[in-house]
Design a protein around this nucleic acid. Structure first.
Lengths: 239, 239
DNA sequence: CGTACCGTTGAGCAGGCTCAACCGCTGTGG
DNA sequence: CCACAGCGGTTGAGCCTGCTCAACGGTACG
């Protein structure tokens, strides 16, 4: 799906965000100049699958911007439960910190390419380039909206409904390049369970239920196909 | 708790946020100049309790900054359930929008004073003043962290634990001016239920349980006192 | 070929939800 | 002044769904 471009300009990336205002997609893309500035302060890193990017409570030195691949952010609770805070894909930022420490662990799901931006340099750059900073502000605002959507997702009681909403959200964030109604799920069932606040058995049963109801087919563990879009959409909307 | 100041400078406000980096609280406060700029584009509004500030899907014309009082943001789902997305207090921003429309309803809980900032003017101001914009970026980042904390809260199964975490979070966001271990809860039980994804009966029972276990006393419907801070903290931490 | 990990399926339990009645306060109108 | 309705909150009974524990299956890898 990559466009043809010279090798040295290949690792360009942008930010995925919907504006708070009407806009002609203008806020979604960084200018070439801004990308170059970010590439200058950042370092391109390519990590294999299941690699830790950072750990909770470790010093927060970088913010990461994904160009390709998938990452999960999670926390392990004292009880042993693992809460997945977010799944992140191309054009997403991660590395949320507080008082200089990361708040969660980040781990790649697949082979992932990202830009590693030193936090201090990034802050200086943003303070200097108000326009780019505005795009980052839009991006974080976008993440906040996603977090609220997730709160609505979690408010559902039925496991099948939660899973359906999750698949729907994954479909929505796919690039339009992907085939319609085929959703990639690079994470494990256990990860999904941690994200949906369900036991992994419940996720498994919910998946079975969606198949029995002929709404979704799981072509394999990491790919779902929505085979009855109308009924599926009804279930998703029946919050 | 108000400091003595001239009447026309009384409605100054700031933003409540913890920096992602180490800082000497420097990021938390707007400069006098920045406050003046905001006051110039904004309008001070004082609303009675239970007043709608805006409705879902209505045109998003303003962002609001609370100087005093309490607000809830919520969404009514097709099923009739009401999901409370956030409770907001002094020095908080609200008015999250997408494509020019608000994503939820906002309603005052108590008498509330706020600044109403036209979104276009605010965006222009932020693009012009990178330093102030950075403080807004910190603020939204702060909100994102809060949203993640809430996800952890919701991952708990037991109602008493959820309520305890909620009370703990309310205590944490109280100004240090408030008396220790006395937590104001300006919202109704029903609002809390909507926030915690519980039925309001469960909230009521959870409150009774906290009292029976001698952790908390509810002096009245809107004020809780933590009477056994150590045991309470253990319950909160037992995620 | 054995091990380990991930996922599935089953049985029984527990905790929260629903429905329903009741309490206490408030505001209103006769 | 009192009677009444309405609302928010509490408490109880029974149901339902997701959790826990457990066994089993399939696939990748040494």
């Amino acid at each position: 799906m990559k466009k043809q471009m010279a090798p040295d300009t290949e690792p360009l990336w942008s930010l995925r965000a919907v504006s708070y205002q009407y806009s002609a997609e203008g806020e979604r893309v960084l200018t070439d100049r801004q990308r170059q500035d970010l590439m200058r302060i950042g370092m391109r890193v390519r990590l294999p699958a299941r690699m830790m990017v950072y750990r909770e409570d470790s010093p927060a030195l970088w913010v990461f911007a994904i160009t390709d691949g998938a990452v999960k952010c999670y926390r392990d609770l004292p009880s042993g439960k693992r809460v997945v805070g977010a799944f992140l894909f191309a054009r997403d930022l991660f590395g949320l910190a507080e008082n200089g420490q990361y708040l969660n662990c980040a781990q790649t799901l697949t082979v992932t390419t990202m830009y590693r931006l030193p936090i201090g340099d990034l802050a200086a750059l943003l303070k200097h380039d108000a326009d780019m900073q505005f795009k980052f502000l839009m991006k974080v605002t976008h993440e906040l909206r996603e977090a609220q959507r997730r709160a609505i997702l979690i408010s559902r009681r039925d496991a099948a409904g939660r899973l359906a909403m999750f698949i729907s959200q994954m479909e929505a964030r796919e690039c339009p390049s992907g085939h319609a109604h085929v959703v990639a799920l690079p994470m494990t069932r256990s990860d999904i369970a941690g994200f949906l606040s369900l036991s992994l058995e419940s996720v498994s049963r919910a998946a079975a239920e969606l198949e029995q109801r002929r709404l979704v087919r799981f072509e394999n563990l990491h790919r779902a196909r929505i085979i009855d879009p109308e009924a599926f959409a009804r279930l998703v909307a029946a919050v």
